[in-house]
Design a protein around this nucleic acid. Sequence first.
DNA 1: GTTTTAATATGATTTAGATCATATTTTTGT
DNA 2: ACAAAAATATGATCTAAATCATATTAAAAC
Lengths: 228, 228
Amino acid sequence: MKKAGACDLKTCFLCQFSIPEWIAAVSDHKQHLFYKKNEVIFQEGNPVEGIFFLYEGKVKVHKQWGSDKDLIVRFAQKGDILGHRGLGSGERLYTVSATALEDTTVCYTDMAFFEASLKVNPTLTLKLMQFYADELQEAERKMRNLVHMDVKSRLADALLEISRLHNDTLFTISRQDLASFAGTTYETIYRNLQEFIQEKLIAVDGKSIRILNEKKLRKYVLSCPGLD
Amino acid sequence: MKKAGACDLKTCFLCQFSIPEWIAAVSDHKQHLFYKKNEVIFQEGNPVEGIFFLYEGKVKVHKQWGSDKDLIVRFAQKGDILGHRGLGSGERLYTVSATALEDTTVCYTDMAFFEASLKVNPTLTLKLMQFYADELQEAERKMRNLVHMDVKSRLADALLEISRLHNDTLFTISRQDLASFAGTTYETIYRNLQEFIQEKLIAVDGKSIRILNEKKLRKYVLSCPGLD
DNA sequence: GTTTTAATATGATTTAGATCATATTTTTGT
DNA sequence: ACAAAAATATGATCTAAATCATATTAAAAC
């Protein structure tokens, strides 16, 4: 991690929903930080120190299991918040890790200042609350998928989600991360990707994946009597 | 559902964190509702109409899958909020169902009034936000458990969680609900309960379960290199 | 109070997907 | 540029847990 100067005071969640009078204070407390690819931004189990707003780059938010297993709960990108789970009422430890998937710039403020900001800016609190509501819904949807959908459908869902995130049918991701995101193993992902390739729903070249037939892919997700 | 008069204006989340001047307005908008055992309080997919505060009884919050499968994402009890997922930015549809597990009294207000309350009472918003943060952490923890723990460990976790909720080592729950909560099938729960009985970690009499050896049960949950 | 319906009990069978094993290719650190 | 580490490829094997099948019992409904 390297410090990377001040921020523009208008892009991030904190600046966007703070009252104009508060921006000066924000300016004093915020700083840009730079993380290079694969660098850990914060680690599950460590004390919560601050909150991060993603400016540039992509980050995976994941829970680790032992030394070699992992579950990616979310991918974050420009505009997203990281470290907000630390605001709960429990122990102040990060319950997830965040790792940069590419070179990443974040805007950072310590938790004390962020909490002061919440007190001063009701709109900020309200927006953050809505953000949580959305994340919770998504987490519960994924929980249900893990229990009731087979791996192929979950992989289809994961591919569509990642594509949506990149706002592009072409994107790059490691099989390992794909496995951790779909809640399965590398080998199973490998095999199911092969099947999707055969069925001409996707095309793969190295680490990059292109979605060729979104409609059919979506059918896999919906093929079950569930709603969505 | 039956209407059941006015509320005491101090027990629920909404009253507790609203400024005194707002309580009169709350009084005009809140009402007690009564649901009997197995009655549906709200249903996944239906438009969000309001928010509920549990006064008495126990409720399961669940996502359905087809007509016969189910995942219980949470049990709610006295003091808990229901229907808050409706505050997200997406479509205003309930993303979960809520069903009374016993005769239940809730305090209800329509969403428009609750949202007005949030605007007027920053503390309320802040507390709700914290509540969400906790729920999100728990949801993600369960996600990880579903992916990385075997059924027996998840059952142990479920039993401990339900016991904690009841604040008692003795509680009553159907095998089916236990299965839906642990993310597995009735048969698998049945078998694993047998094993726990054999190991003298629990005792079962009809639908009631007593935890005999919390420590060993907890070991099952922690037996893996994960943290918690 | 009897008919339906739902929950429980339990063995037998099947299968999706994890694990293991090993070779090859790609990345990354120095 | 080269060694070490990580990611990928792919077949073979194993197993936890789902599914199926069928009694039995308990709870609701009429």
